[in-house]
Amino acid sequence: MPQRCLQKPSEPLRHTSHMEGRAAHEASWRQLQQELERERRWVGRLRGLRTRTRVSLVAGLALAPAVLMALRHGAWLELAHGPELAHGAVAGLIVALTAALLSSLGEPRRGTRRAWLAGLSAFVPLAGALALAELGETHEPASAAACFGLGIALAAPSVLLALIISRTPVRGWTEVALLAGLSGISASLMLDVHCASRQLVHLVLGHALIGICAGVGWAAASQAAATGSAAPSGKSNTNTISKMS
C-alpha cells in the first residue's frame, strides 16, 4: 500500500486562546445538552419520528385536499375514463411527489440533490394541464386568479410542515423548490378536480402555474433566509439553524 511509504501527518487540534482542549470539549457538551433539552418540545418530537412517518405526514397533508375533493365530487371517475395523457400526468405527479419527499426529508446522505426532479416539477403541471384540457367541461368554471390563490393557499401547509419537521439544518434551494413545487402541483390537482374549466389558458394560468410559483417562491425565501442567517464566527450555528430546519 502506498501509505506505508508515507508518514501520517499529525493533526493537532486548533483551539481559541480562551478556551482550550478539555474546556472546549466541556463547553460544547453543555451547549449540546441545551439543544437536546429543546428537542423535548413538540417540534423536536416531530423531528425525532422515523423518516417514513414524517414523509407520510407531509404526503398525507399534501394529498388530502385532492383526495377528499375527488371522493366528494367523484370527478376522478371522469379522469379514469379520460385520455392516456391524463393518466400519465397523474402517474408522473405521484412518482415525482414521492421522490421529492424522500429526497427532502430523508436521512442525510450524499447525492440527495436530484436535479432531474426540478425538470419534473416544471413538466408535470404543464402536462397535467394539457391532459385535463382534453377532458371537457363538467362543472361551473371559476376565474384563473381565484384558482391560483386557492391553490397557493392549499400548497402552503404541507410545505410548512415539511420544513418544520425536516432534520437537515440548511435546506438547499433545489430541495425546497422541489418540495414546494410538488405540493403546488398537488394543490393544482385538487383544483383540477374541483374546477370546471377545461380551457387551456385557465388551466395554465390558474392551475399549472401554482406548482411553478410555489417552487420558485419558497426557494427564493429559503435562499434569503439562509443568506440572512449565516452565523458569524464565535456564535453557535445550532440555534440559528434549528429555526430554519
Partner: peptide, 23 residues
C-alpha cells in the same frame, strides 16, 4: 479555518444523531 465553526458543526452532528435516532 475558524475554530468555532468547526466546533459548532461537531455539536450539530451530535444533534442530528439524536434527531435521527429512530432511523
Amino acid at each position: 479555518a475558524i475554530v468555532e465553526e468547526a466546533r459548532d458543526l461537531v455539536q450539530q452532528t451530535f444533534l442530528q444523531v439524536h434527531r435521527a435516532r429512530a432511523d
